[in-house]
Design a binder for these strands. Structure first.
Length: 443
RNA sequence: GGCCCGUUCGUCUAGUGGUUAGGACAUCUGGUUUUCAUCCAGGCAACAGGAGUUCGAUUCUCCUACGGGCUACCA
């Protein structure tokens, strides 16, 4: 095939937010096109007037913007093509490749296959399926798929209200958009047989198909909007990085040897539909989280700072130091908020279980003594703070943990945090002394 | 029910007519860390089942089981 002729499309119906399965299918369609330096279009299939909503369309477009998938050309709206569909149906009728009938019962309807009835508000138009032979195609991921035409039925292409139905619109749009390869979900395999026959009736060579297996939820059940699937925007709101999300999605059903981390460029460069898996894959939040952490850690510090939402953490010098200190403990952008709490707010209350673990018989006394020594410390740097605490520990002939653990609790309100000396340095002497004193009173 | 698709560690997957069936996530065990996180080292763990083809099948074929999809005047 010539490189520039590859054109794919992603065609969601705006009846819900973009879900993870759709995003992955779109990603594959996009990667496929881009790997051949072709184009990938976005088509909104909004012919279902009842369920389609404009807000969903907007949400879908926003999700792709976030993900970093850019579609080529103008977005196509099926709802705007009604006249075109009608024209094509007219021509099909004229050529005797479709027929008018009541639409109530297929067997009854079939009697009118060659009748040429007049259309009115009580009739529908059915497509004349070939009755003999087979319909087959060579799928990019599944190989050859074939079905007896006998299994296919004369499906309705025009409703009684005059509007065209999905399996028909899709074909007309794919022809009009000159789509060369259709990369879509597995759930369309059976539609493909119908659509191929429409292509033939329209005397257009059908495109090449590639059916990607669907994503299953962690429970192994299908992930779909109807079954409580998760929208792409929710992952954005969780503080997942788009690059990590794209990387994870790509690896869910596609692989290149043992490589796990791919930049978008590498994905485009290396994507081959032949490397797509034929079996459905289960979504794993654990692995997504791992990817996110990898990207978070690999990111340039300045870029990271810019990405952390300001409602979580401010963009000033103090906050930069905080971010530096806690970044390796964060799995998502949002974690920066929870992990940095105590750098902005004094711990007000302590958990009973933490107190039991940290506060022993002599602890309060030790805390008082340490507080005094720290307040006399002249150089307030993590190194000197650590030295001072070590000296204190030696003097008292106790283990580091005897004072380290309670100190951590006083300063952070938690038993887990970065090393206490670094926390001390950042918090500043006054604050440290204050927190120790406050904590002693509340223990 | 009919038709279509699928089945390698718990999960994502690599791979081959002869391999100690590889990697990653998760998990477990050590080491580092005063804690947690990180990091390092190591461990556990898979070819759904049955026939057939073959000197030899995880790999090829068929059957069964299981899973998924479609079967709308939804897309």
């Amino acid at each position: 095939m010539s490189k520039s002729s590859v054109r794919t499309r992603f065609a969601p119906s705006p009846t819900g937010y973009l879900h993870i399965g759709g995003a992955r299918t779109a990603l594959f369609a996009w990667l496929f096109a881009k790997s051949y330096e072709g184009d990938c279009l976005l088509r909104i299939e909004d012919t279902d007037k009842e369920r389609s909503k404009e807000e969903y369309t907007e949400e879908i477009i926003r999700s792709f913007e976030w993900l970093g998938i850019e579609f080529d050309e103008e977005v196509v709206y099926q709802s705007k093509n009604a006249i075109r569909y009608k024209e094509v149906i007219d021509s099909l009728l004229e050529e005797g490749l479709a027929y008018v009938c009541s639409g109530e019962d297929l067997q009854e309807d079939k009697k009118f296959r060659d009748e040429n009835l007049a259309r009115d508000e009580n009739t529908v138009v059915r497509f004349k399926m070939p009755e003999k032979g087979t319909t087959k195609f060579d799928d990019l991921v599944k190989g050859q798929i074939e079905v007896l035409n006998d299994e296919l039925e004369d499906f309705i292409i025009e409703r009684s209200d005059g509007s065209a139905t999905y399996n028909f619109c899709v074909v007309v749009d794919d022809i009009d958009s000159e789509i060369s390869h259709i990369i879509r979900g597995d759930d369309h395999v059976n539609n493909t047989f119908k659509q191929i026959n429409v292509f033939k009736a329209l005397k257009v060579e059908p495109p090449t198909y590639g059916h990607v297996p669907l994503i299953l939820g962690e429970d192994g059940k299908r992930m779909s909007k109807r079954h409580g699937a998760v929208g792409v925007s929710e992952y954005r709101d969780m503080g997942i990085l788009p690059q990590a999300f794209m990387n994870y999605l790509a690896r869910l059903g596609w692989s290149l040897g043992d490589q796990e981390i791919f930049t978008p460029d590498e994905l485009v460069k290396n994507f081959r539909s032949g490397n797509l898996n034929t079996a459905p894959a289960s979504f794993s939040l654990d692995k997504l989280t791992w990817y996110n952490k990898e990207y978070l850690n690999a990111m340039e510090f300045t870029d990271l700072v810019d990405l952390i939402p300001s409602e979580h953490i401010k963009n000033d010098e103090y906050s930069k130091k905080v971010i530096e200190l806690i970044r390796e403990r964060c799995n998502s952008l949002n974690d920066f908020s929870t992990e940095s709490q105590y750098f902005y707010n004094k711990p007000e209350a302590f958990k009973e279980e933490d107190k039991i673990k940290a506060i022993k018989e002599n602890t309060l006394n030790l805390l008082n003594l340490l507080s005094e020594r720290l307040s006399n410390l002249t150089e307030w740097k993590s190194d000197s703070i650590q030295e001072e605490i070590k000296a204190f520990v030696d003097d008292q002939e106790i283990g580091f943990a005897k004072i380290g653990i309670p100190l951590r609790l006083c300063l952070t309100g938690s038993l887990n945090s970065p090393s206490t000396d670094k926390v001390c340095e950042l918090l500043g002497k006054e604050e440290v002394i204050g927190r120790i004193e406050f904590a002693i009173k509340s223990f």
